[in-house]
Amino acid sequence: MFSPHGPSLRELAIQALSSVERGYDLLAPKFEHTPFRTPDAILDATAGALRPLGPFERGLDVCCGTGAGVGVLRPLCRGPVTGVDFSSGMLAQARRAHPDATWVRADVRALPFDAAFDLAVSFGALGHFLPAERPALFAGVHRALRPGGLFAFPIGAPPPVSTARYWALQGFDLAMRVRNAVWRPPFVMYYGTSWPRAVRDDLVAAGFSVTAVPLTALGRREDGSPRCRLLLARRT
């Protein structure tokens, strides 16, 4: 599916019936050829918004997957860059693509770092965390940053209720809830549990000072508001 080099429907079905970790281990060799990989347009817009705020020293890619975020961090950071993920399969692909970075296998809900980084980024990962799990994730990133350090990630605006996209996302989340109610292990991937206001509140509760920058290069909605913003959470 998706491209001649992407996973087949059967491979996607096997992934969807696995745990999140096992599913991404299976998907890893073909992940770059799926729509799940963060588009270059989002990576480039994020890098452009962060560039005036740097330079930074050490960088961390949270839920790094195959390492796309390292391409954002490397030109922004004068020091070493690290990626962390719990999928050994995804990390293996990341090591091949970026052998000069450091790769750490860990559960990001319990990050093994203490005041080690100046900039942390994350792309496309929030849907893998239930709302009750976000406080542990954000507390770990807060702890991993040095005082004054920045945690940045793009977040899309909620689609209007009147749009087909809104109902498509609601349908996907409903299907995922049904799947998790009748099948074990669960596969956590929801689109409607991490809207900007709730995420901002959790960041503030974790000790961050939060602002947002519109990523206008990614387009605007019909009301003129940006489709996507970059959340900037600073450890004060």
Rank of each mutant, 00 (worst) to 15 (best):
F31A: 11
M1H: 09
P154M: 00
R220I: 01
R179M: 12
P35L: 03
A97C: 10
L126N: 12
T66D: 13
L27M: 13
L60K: 05
P185K: 10
F151Q: 04
A45I: 00
T66H: 13
D100S: 14
A212R: 15
R95M: 13
L230T: 13
R146G: 07
S194Y: 02
V210F: 07
G156D: 12
G48W: 07
A164Q: 14
A41I: 02
L53N: 09
F31R: 11
C77M: 11
R184W: 13
P55H: 05
G224R: 05
R234Q: 14
A68W: 03
G79T: 00
T82I: 12
R200C: 04
H98G: 03
G124Y: 03
D118Y: 04
A28F: 01
F56T: 07
S209R: 12
T82V: 15
G127S: 02
A175E: 04
R235W: 05
P196S: 02
A116K: 12
S3Q: 11
G148L: 00
A68N: 15
Q93M: 13
D61C: 09
A181W: 14
T82C: 15
I14P: 00
F36C: 03
L231D: 11
G54R: 06
R184Q: 15
D85A: 00
R197L: 13
W183I: 00
F129W: 03
A28S: 07
G207W: 10
F117D: 07
A13M: 03
G48M: 09
P55G: 05
G67W: 06
P35I: 05
F172C: 06
A205M: 04
L27F: 09
H5W: 07
A157W: 00
G69P: 01
D40S: 14
I14E: 15
K30A: 02
L53K: 12
V204P: 03
A41N: 01
G171K: 13
A157N: 00
R143M: 03
A97R: 15
F187T: 01
V84A: 15
R22G: 06
T216R: 14
L73R: 00
L43C: 15
A136P: 00
G207C: 11
P160Q: 11
V121W: 04
F56S: 09
P214C: 08
R177K: 10
V204R: 14
Q93S: 03
L130Y: 08
F153W: 14
G79H: 08
V188K: 06
S225G: 03
V81Q: 08
A152C: 01
G83D: 01
F123E: 08
R95D: 07
G171L: 14
T38E: 00
G224P: 09
R179E: 09
A49K: 07
A157Y: 04
R105M: 05
D223Y: 13
P186E: 15
R22Q: 14
V72C: 10
A49V: 04
A157V: 08
D173Q: 12
V108Q: 08
R95P: 02
T38W: 03
L230V: 10
A139L: 10
P112W: 02
L203F: 01
T193P: 03
R105L: 10
A164C: 01
